[in-house]
Design a protein around this nucleic acid. Structure first.
Lengths: 167, 167
DNA sequence: ACTAGATACTTTGACGTCCAAGTATCTAGA
DNA sequence: TCTAGATACTTGGACGTCAAAGTATCTAGT
């Protein structure tokens, strides 16, 4: 019997009469585990002043035309809750990578703006992540692309608007 | 241009000269997003008394020979930090699904034991998750298996001991 | 001109993640 | 017999997730 906890769980599923659900269960658990490993690795590389969540916000701002975006747009683009954006931007502001300013023409809106220290940190973080994570995820590029296409179908199935719907 | 935030990010990556890293970045971000969607869906189905983390512990105990396991074994099997096990078992105990008892022969060890209410809840939760998530993840079974195999290679690459190492 | 409803953001709280530190117990070796 | 080092678990804290609620601002319609 395998020592892999996920393979073990699949065996249990089958033994208990849920063979039909076992492949789906194994895929879901595997996705959860891979995400956990990736995030541990990425957070290790970005420590102590960045996490993946904060890094994503910095990159979004770095890519934007004026280096600033309303908080609601950040939440929408990263597909996270407004409260999560508030929390992460709080820390980026604390560390001097971002500033916040109210939009004069619409008092409801807050712009998060990347600072030059933030741009510099974003660049350094990207260099590390490209080199240590993204350049080699353990699959040949063609396979990585194929897995992404398949996972886009899972995203579409779960309600995400993504490119899988255009195929 | 695509409205998919992840596809957009890949375009930015390529535009900034990081084309080599772009497929890896897209896969990593897609895995993160799929995991987020899956967990939102699963937690919605298990609310209000279970989360995926707690459900996994219940299933581990339900599958075990005596319906009880030391906390350290739970952490090891689920590959989470001991403090996370403490937190989740606290809540399972609060809700009457699990009890805790110190091992007489080894005072360091605490056994978590599933109660009959816990078994019943685990069964009901499995029925719901099998029907609503695992039976149809948006991919044909053969494709789901193939993606799992590929993600196992990513796990192995990141240091997990799993079946990918035996192939 | 006014207001109900919508939008934007923050705050509070629960949750589970990990890290670091603390407490309790066990054990191999001297 | 004793103790240093190891093991097991809990606690405190930071973090980011979401839900719910609160506060502030905007706007379409009357």
């Amino acid at each position: 019997m395998s020592a892999d906890p996920i393979a073990l769980a699949e065996s249990h599923w089958t033994d208990h009469g849920w063979a039909h659900s076992a492949p789906g269960m194994r895929l879901v658990t595997t996705i959860t585990r891979v995400q956990q490993l990736l995030h541990q690795r990425i957070d290790d590389l970005l420590r102590p002043d960045l996490t993946f969540a904060r890094y994503e916000i910095l990159m979004l701002l770095a890519f934007s035309r004026r280096g600033a975006l309303p908080m609601s747009v950040i939440g929408s683009r990263l597909q996270v809750h407004a409260a999560s954006v508030t929390s992460a931007v709080d820390r980026l502001e604390r560390d001097g990578y971002v500033t916040r300013e109210r939009v004069e023409s619409d008092g409801r809106r807050v712009l998060a703006r990347i600072t030059s220290a933030g741009r510099k940190r974003a660049k350094a973080a990207t260099d590390v992540l490209n080199r240590e994570v993204f350049d080699d995820v353990g699959l040949p590029t063609a396979t990585a692309r194929k897995v992404t296409v398949d996972l886009d179908r899972v995203r579409a199935h779960l309600g995400d608007a993504c490119d899988a719907e255009r195929e």
